[in-house]
Simulated scan of single mutants.
Amino acid sequence: MGEKIIGFHAIEEGLKRAASGSVLYLVRGMGSNTQTLERQAQLSGKVIVKKIAKVEMDRMVDQADHRGAVLDLMVPVKGAGARIPAMSVKEFCAGLKEDDSALVLVLDEITDPQNLGAILRSADQFSVSLVIIPERRSAQANTTVVKVSSGAAHYVPLATVTNMNREIEFLKKEGFWVYGASMNGQAVYKTVFPKRTVLVMGNEGKGIGQLTQKLCDHMVTIPMTGHIDSLNVSVATGILLYEVRRQQATK
Rank of each mutant, 00 (worst) to 15 (best):
G202D: 01
T144A: 14
L215T: 09
K172V: 14
V161Q: 02
S101A: 09
G151I: 02
I119R: 09
Y189R: 06
E169G: 05
A159S: 14
G209Q: 10
Q210D: 15
A159V: 13
R121Q: 14
V161D: 01
T191R: 03
N184I: 04
E204I: 03
T212Q: 09
V200R: 02
S127H: 14
L120V: 14
G185W: 07
G117A: 11
S122C: 15
A152K: 00
V192H: 06
L116F: 11
V156F: 03
Q114P: 04
I119G: 07
K195N: 12
V131K: 03
A153R: 04
W177L: 13
G202V: 03
I208S: 01
T111Q: 13
Y179H: 12
I133Y: 07
D124M: 15
R196A: 03
V131Q: 01
S138I: 11
A118S: 13
Q186M: 15
C216K: 01
R121G: 14
A152Y: 02
L171D: 05
L120W: 11
L171H: 02
A181F: 11
C216V: 03
N163F: 14
V106T: 05
G205Y: 06
V178A: 04
V145M: 12
V148E: 12
L107T: 01
G205R: 08
L130M: 08
F126G: 03
N115R: 10
